[in-house]
Amino acid sequence: MGFPKGGSMFKSTMPENGKIVQLHFDGEAITAFDGDNLVAALLRAGKIQFRTAAKNDPRGPYCMMGICFECLVEIDGRPNQQACQIIVRDGMTIHRQSTPDSSSQVSG
């Protein structure tokens, strides 16, 4: 499942039930529940990095309300989808993305 080091991880606070669906995240099979919010499904599976804004600038979900635009992933071939606004579908294929999202021009 890929538990992050340091011992903290996301877990369910209510009994888990509901129909199981399969997702694919960067080629890895992930189990989720029908009706899951996509960020929740990925966090539950231990996936906290969704993209890189530039080399050495990893990002993941932040606000969960659609205003920070950090949780962008490619879903079924379409890039720049806000995962926190998406409900999972069985067979959904998600990829981390590394579109040129930072202003590498700016000098220090």
């Binding site: 903290s8 991880m9 369910s12 209510m14 929740a40 979900p61």
Partner: peptide
């Protein structure tokens, strides 16, 4: 901006939306 950092509102929404919390 590191993965693993979220706003508290984001953490609370995960609790409401998905009954998910971080230990």
């Amino acid at each position: 901006t590191l993965p693993g950092v979220m706003s508290v509102g984001g953490a609370q929404t995960l609790l409401k939306q998905a009954a998910l919390g971080a230990d």
